[in-house]
């Protein structure tokens, strides 16, 4: 039996049976793992309020050979309580958590992604993370997962994307007009590519709403193509009018 303590961010939870819960955690040492929290839905003392998505924990975990990891005890390090005060903050936080969960494979350490998520949740909690910061988070998370799309040059010939670029998810980024016959994907506004390339390079000035909406759609298509499915929270963001 292996016992250890680790910093862990709750990515999602799933009710199991009448009283238990399966908790998907992003841990510092072992990456994403799903732990069994016995009695989590009934016990008001052991886990109460701590197993909510987006809570940073100090978790005590136990693994028996060949069985599911068990969550023994937790201590809340940061609950990011102000995120719960506004619907857009909740929607963006849950989107970020779902993106992290889906980008990671089980038990592959991803300490940089954990730090990125915790830092971003902190800024969201402090009211410092607006809609453009969601794009920045997505791009950084994709980069850490080795899936960085290319916006500053044609992915096929390496030259500037030009005035009539396309975005080809299969080739992983922008395609210039000359290479368009070898690519698929829709035409896009060059200003969207410039905006995304600037965010990739570290710029943090907000994008105008129209460009932002196009950039969000473009990244959503890219992420869907990489993961092979659409993130559920993308539809939620749309249905409650949050970008």
């Amino acid at each position: 039996m292996d016992r250890w303590e680790d910093e862990a961010l709750v990515l999602s939870t799933l009710d199991y049976g009448d009283a238990d819960r399966l908790v998907t955690l992003l841990t510092r040492g072992r990456g994403k793992l799903t732990a069994f929290a016995a009695g989590a839905r009934k016990s008001r003392r052991r886990f109460a309020g701590a197993l909510e998505p987006g809570t940073l924990l100090r978790a005590r975990l136990v693994e028996r050979h060949g069985s599911t990891v068990r969550l023994d005890a937790v201590e809340v390090v940061h609950a990011f309580p102000h995120i719960r005060e506004e619907l857009p903050r909740i929607a963006r936080a849950l989107y970020a958590l779902e993106l992290c969960r889906e980008l990671l494979r089980d038990e592959e350490p991803a300490p940089e992604l954990l730090s990125l998520a915790v830092d971003w949740l902190g800024r969201l909690d402090a009211g410092e993370a607006g809609p453009t910061s969601v794009l920045a988070f997505e791009l950084q998370a994709l980069a850490l997962a080795g899936l960085m799309p290319r916006f500053d040059a044609c992915t096929l010939c390496g030259r500037p994307p030009g005035e009539a670029p396309r975005f080809d998810v299969d080739h992983g980024g922008a395609v210039c007009a000359d290479c368009a016959p070898r690519a698929t994907g829709p035409r896009i506004d060059p200003a969207v590519l410039e905006g995304l390339a600037a965010i990739q390079a570290g710029a943090r000035q907000p994008l105008p709403p129209a460009l932002r909406a196009e950039a969000r759609g473009l990244l959503a298509r890219f992420i869907e193509a990489q993961l092979g499915r659409r993130l559920k929270s993308v539809e939620f963001l749309r249905s409650v009018g949050v970008d």
């Binding site: 999602s12 998505p53 909740i90 929607a91 849950l94 989107y95 958590l97 779902e98 559920k232 929270s233 539809e235 939620f236 963001l237 249905s239 409650v240």
Partner: peptide, 11 residues
């Protein structure tokens, strides 16, 4: 309830 992670929206 609304559940972004389960894809449950207002509809």
């Amino acid at each position: 309830v609304l559940s972004p992670l389960e894809g449950i929206g207002p509809e």
